[in-house]
Design a protein around this nucleic acid. Sequence first.
DNA 1: CCACCAAGTTGTACTATGCAACTAGAGCGG
DNA 2: CCGCTCTAGTTGCATAGTACAACTTGGTGG
Lengths: 152, 152
Amino acid sequence: MNAADASVETIQREMTAFARRARASAGRMHPELSLVSYTLLGHLEESGGCRATDLAAHYALDKSTVSRQVSALERAGLIERRVDPEDHRVQVLQLTEAGTHILAQVTESRRIAFRERLADWPAADLERFAAYLVRYNTAAAGAPPAAHASGS
Amino acid sequence: MNAADASVETIQREMTAFARRARASAGRMHPELSLVSYTLLGHLEESGGCRATDLAAHYALDKSTVSRQVSALERAGLIERRVDPEDHRVQVLQLTEAGTHILAQVTESRRIAFRERLADWPAADLERFAAYLVRYNTAAAGAPPAAHASGS
DNA sequence: CCACCAAGTTGTACTATGCAACTAGAGCGG
DNA sequence: CCGCTCTAGTTGCATAGTACAACTTGGTGG
């Protein structure tokens, strides 16, 4: 195995290790907003409102899963649904003020946690690391890990 | 917000996005070996055998969770338990040949998937990315994201 | 109008997980 | 040696997230 392969293996292992911890960590940090809810809210904020189907597609989740998450978020008053006047099947999801507020809070406290862990990193390394992650995830979104199995 | 903060935020968002996908992706890739099982087997291989409590501590899982995972893995014939002769409370967990084999298979196919996504990366970037991840996870292990909340 | 497709919802099942209660073994002070 | 306490692990119970399948409702094209 050459150096590049070794790096790939390290990346694999470390990404995996991180992923395994993330959910639980996120839950411990913010019992009120699970990792999934957080990402859904985040997407709504970025997109400025979208359909449940869009969320499902974006996050490779089943629409039933999204439906339930959305219900929970609506019950919690963090998002609201508006029937699209042009297509009554569609519900446009949008953050409420409470949702925007909570999202900002959680984002901030997550940022603090991350910043703690990254405190002693040189700025140049942070930038490169961030860029690598973006690049990696972009590739992953286009060609998911299951590509050779799922085909989709 | 300065450039470093922006990088931190990007890192946070991208790590989160990855984490959210990882479990499902791993499951689709290898229905026979969940992400958790995979990491547990991996740890057993690395450590050359350890106790359930060690696994729980290492992965910040409840011992009951580990106990069930271990039971499942044993049922599947991938690991075996041996009572420690020096302390009959302790079960030393070790990979069986079948476990070693499956682990190698899954590792290989995961590596292929990762390599696909990283195919067009220069070797130098791979190395740096890997190093960043290791560094990040090491810091995370020492000072988990919930550090400011959990204390321990 | 009817057949078909698309967006969501709901029923059901499964997995991972944590907490609490429990069992069993180890170690310690009397 | 006896009980107290600690540790390792198991089990009962509850919860969250997820998928799949069946269904409801609304749009579209013949």
